[in-house]
């Protein structure tokens, strides 16, 4: 019984880590309708900045938690205003090409600045201990990630559902013309949403770096995982992304435990089954 409990904790922790990584992508896709293939790269830059900030002192992790997301948000501001804005009228294919091009550029820039060795971000002593649950040692940080994921999900849900900003954003998703007719600067809304997406990507990078590490091509691996979570959850729904993250976390963990040779297959199989049964994802709205 203990082993099931321990695996349950593993699954929930991994799932919430996925949520922290994916929520920025989900927000940007849900509202801007832009499939940001550079999301993984923004995540990576957040992680590398965290590495640079903490390399001399692990206590700087707290500083990294503020600096890295802000730096990535600024970078997103630059991307949105100089490049992405040009593609809103060009459609999905151009955005795919643009953000993929950006991903390539950031890939080489990162290896120029930080090299191609495998790196890790060390945690401050207060987070690096172990905690025993179900007769099994867990790194305390894994449990902290559960907390962070839950708080983040609650905050995003609150903003989207209960505040004026959330209302504007939700309206923007449904009808861009109507929003501008109400006298709200839709351009500004899009820019701000993209910045928040970047901020969350950078934040995800810092949170995930101590667990997943930093290595060349990490961004593409993260991207594909984030896309799967996004799709299973359904587009434009934070609640859906949350549910999908937990679901994938649990399915992956238990498949590794019960039938390890299938685990590679299973996540994509799950995605295919959900899309065939529920073509708009778990909790998604219809987006063309």
């Amino acid at each position: 019984m203990d082993i099931i409990g321990a695996q349950l904790v593993n699954g929930v922790s991994y799932g919430l880590l996925l949520f922290v990584i994916t929520c920025g992508l989900a927000l940007v896709f849900g509202i801007l309708g832009v499939l940001n293939l550079a999301h993984g790269s923004l995540y990576m830059i957040g992680a590398y900045i965290a590495y640079s900030v903490t390399v001399n002192s692990t206590e700087n992790f707290w500083i990294a938690l503020i600096i890295a997301p802000i730096a990535v948000a600024l970078l997103s501001l630059l991307i949105e205003t100089t490049l992405l804005r040009l593609t809103y009228h060009l459609g999905h294919l151009s955005q795919v090409l643009l953000t993929f091009g950006l991903a390539y550029v950031f890939h080489d820039l990162a290896s120029m600045v930080w090299g191609s060795n495998v790196l890790t971000v060390a945690l401050p002593p207060s987070l690096s201990g172990t905690t025993t649950l179900f007769n099994q040692n867990f790194p305390t940080y894994r449990l902290v990630v559960i907390g962070i994921g839950l708080v983040l999900a609650a905050a995003l849900w609150f903003i989207q559902e209960k505040t004026r900003w959330g209302a504007i954003i939700r309206a923007g998703l449904c009808d861009k013309e109507m929003i501008s007719a109400l006298g709200i600067n839709i351009k500004l809304v899009l820019t701000i949403v993209f910045i928040i997406g970047g901020f969350l990507a950078g934040f995800g990078g810092v949170i995930a770096a101590p667990i997943l590490g930093l290595y060349p091509s990490m961004e593409f691996q993260t991207l594909i995982l984030a896309l799967v979570v996004l799709v299973i959850g359904g587009l434009g729904s934070i609640a859906g992304t949350f549910a999908a993250s937990i679901l994938i976390g649990l399915v992956e963990t238990f498949s590794k435990y019960l039938m390890p040779e299938l685990s590679l297959f299973l996540v994509f199989g799950l995605m295919a089954v959900i899309l065939v049964v529920k073509p708009n994802g778990l909790l998604g709205k219809k987006v063309a």
């Binding site: 799967v228 799709v231 297959f265 199989g269 995605m271 899309l275 065939v276 073509p279 987006v287 063309a288």
Partner: peptide, 21 residues
């Protein structure tokens, strides 16, 4: 059965399943 972005992702899912096979 699906369209738009979901079509893109479903084709991705199938191709990744074939890849893992």
């Amino acid at each position: 059965k699906v369209s738009g972005f979901y079509f893109l992702m479903l084709t991705l899912a199938f191709s990744q399943m074939i890849y893992s096979f």
